[in-house]
Design a protein around this nucleic acid. Structure first.
Lengths: 328, 328
DNA sequence: CTGAAAGCGCTTACAG
DNA sequence: CTGAAAGCGCTTACAG
């Protein structure tokens, strides 16, 4: 009895009467450098022994592991599944595994920790999804010589890889859509002042200005359901006829509060949501949205971090559902 | 100029005039085995050089990496964030990192691949969240000598580690709750026949039987929003006054279809949902639910896989919102 | 097509 | 408190 040791290529070599070099070549599939016969024997024995490669050993000698690290945080919003799907799919096509490192809820320490973990593992690329980096993070990343790419966040500088929607344009379009339907008192709700937030604020402001419309105070928030719920009162105080919600979650919160306070959507208040996740179908009424192509954002970011051609901005679409009314 | 090499302990040793053994001890914090003075010097130089440990090397010699692998799939439902939070938190307390491996949408190949990746990385434990293992997976896992634990899934055998809600009891309680409010024609909707599904079916059947009530045909589905939407028609055909939805997503789908078909909830149809995620607050009316403590399921599963005392079943709670009516 | 050997960057008895 | 040395399990020139 005793403890069964995990078999290594040494065991396979001994069992099959060849050198570990040959075993290694066969197992690593270095075609052309071994005979079919040896290969068959080695593969058979490997299987019998239940051989499993030791990634640590491989990574150590290769000085690089074939995995992409995806760092995500627990955003109050919920688009991550689609991004992950896109990343996983494209990474697989490029022969890369992906490990997800969770950075908590905008927790700087955890975020930092996640980056360090990725660096220590010599990953082939680092993807940061909806992560707002602090100066220290950026220094760390830049010093690392490992390619990194922001996902669904555009830092505004061309020298840092990023794939996202064009948030300024997205907000501009959202605003114009509402204006085209007769709204002139429109506010932007639940948004912060980080990169994505300011870009959207700019797009909204620009669209209002282009239409010579006054801009009500922007109502700040953290993209969450709770923020939407809480902010409805302030929206009412602004006497607007339409709002652009910073996320589906904010829109859902707004809507829930509206129901409670007897505000009819879209009759009394139109809501244009940003994201277009399944949340938009779940609410009553369903939410009209600026729909982002998160899957594509994910797959393009893999391309980018792996040095392949990729889009910087992924197109956005307007999905008309039932939360926006025409006004005259 | 030239390519800057990643510094190693060798570089630090050279720079500080000590052996790599000492550097290793200081960096690994083997208190008591080095002087404060040497430590200070080494730490300073390590920082200057931007030293970053090579996990592959460490894992190779230690034959174990201090990370727990969490394998999750893209369930159509959405409780994973809370589970991940619980896992991350508890793992951190135990000095373990966590890497998340994504197994696609109930994709057996990906699922298998994820398990193999975890094994190859010599993780200290494997957590499988809402994963239905096939025979091959189980063989692999058992042969590995790495502890593994199912999360939010109970296989029904005590020899396999698992932490979940008691799904039979959960469904029993849900049914009894509806019966206590006067319902006698109750159906169970959107559920499958895997472990969790059958356990819930059993609880529902037992509760109906205990109350001498006839059990309408169970309406099968995959826990998704789409299943709920599609199944409403069949619910109507059953002429029940209440349904238990297999998940929040099913409940939301049912509700959306109900609105479209003019079925009033809860006046015409009561809905009891299972999960209790934020989805329940987003819908109109808000969904009464059997609320699972996903965070706790996550943290307890870490305990279990790390060999610490842990609960098998985590308590469930009834959260009354607005989707269930009394009937006479 | 195959093998011997060096080496990846660490850790850890062992000896002092 | 510190160092020399062996070793973790692989890969890969190099030589044949």
């Amino acid at each position: 009895m005793g403890i069964v040791m995990k078999p290594t290529i040494k065991d396979i070599a001994a069992e099959s009467g060849v050198s570990i070099a040959t075993v290694s070549r066969v197992l690593a599939n270095k075609t052309g450098s071994y005979s079919e016969k040896t290969a068959a024997k080695i593969l058979k024995i490997a299987k019998e022994l239940g051989y499993r490669k030791n990634s640590a050993a491989v990574d150590l000698v290769k000085k690089r592991s074939n995995v992409i690290a995806l760092i995500i945080n627990a955003t109050p919003t919920n688009f991550s599944t689609q991004i992950i799907d896109g990343i996983q799919q494209r990474a697989g096509e490029l022969g890369q595994g992906v490990i997800i490192l969770y950075a908590g809820d905008r927790d700087n320490t955890l975020q930092h920790q996640a980056i360090i973990t990725a660096l220590e593992r010599s990953v082939s690329g680092i993807l940061l999804a909806a992560i707002e980096p602090d100066a220290e993070d950026l220094t760390l990343l830049k010093a690392s010589r490992i390619p990194f790419c922001f996902v669904s966040l555009y830092l505004g500088t061309a020298d840092i890889l990023a794939v996202s929607s064009d948030n300024r344009d997205l907000a501009y379009q959202a605003t114009q859509y509402l204006i085209d339907r007769g709204h002139s008192r429109i506010s932007l709700v639940g948004i912060d002042n980080y990169h994505t937030g300011s870009q959207r604020q700019a797009g909204y402001r620009d669209a209002m200005a282009a239409n010579r419309l006054a801009t009500p105070a922007i109502l700040p928030g953290d993209y969450s359901f709770a923020a939407g719920e809480r902010l409805l009162q302030q929206v009412q105080a602004q006497h607007v006829t339409a709002v652009i919600a910073a996320s589906d979650m904010v829109a859902a919160g707004l809507l829930t509060a509206a129901h409670q306070r007897g505000v009819r959507v879209p009759e009394d208040l139109s809501i244009m949501s940003i994201d277009g996740t399944i949340i938009c179908q779940i609410t009553t009424p369903a939410l009209t949205s600026m729909t982002q192509d998160f899957y594509r954002i994910g797959s393009q970011s893999v391309n980018k971090v792996m040095g392949q051609p990729a889009e910087d901005f992924v197109p956005v679409e307007i999905t008309e559902r039932a939360s926006v009314a025409r006004v005259h």
